[in-house]
């Protein structure tokens, strides 16, 4: 069985999201199973956000900030 993990990406709108935007402009690809959630600042991330992500069915959570 080919397992493709569903990954939630919690990203900072100022750095990681902007970088992802630039990567997109450069036609770089990322898997469709990665879903981006923007934070104004990843300092806002709380343990409950991570738990809720897993409860919602994520296999992994990536934090970029």
């Amino acid at each position: 069985m080919n397992f493709t993990p569903k990954i939630l990406a919690y990203v900072c709108t100022y750095c990681t999201y902007t970088a992802a935007d630039m990567a997109g402009s450069a036609r770089m690809q990322y898997p469709a199973t990665v879903r981006i959630i923007k934070y104004l600042c990843t300092g806002r991330i709380d343990i409950i956000h991570i738990l809720k992500g897993f409860e919602a069915g994520a296999d992994a959570i990536f934090v970029g900030g």
Binding site: I48, L51, K52
Partner: peptide
């Protein structure tokens, strides 16, 4: 209130 949410989430995940 925050810790109530954490415990509930932990229980749901663990039992799930």
């Amino acid at each position: 209130e925050k810790e109530v949410g954490l415990l509930a989430s932990q229980l749901r995940l663990a039992l799930g």
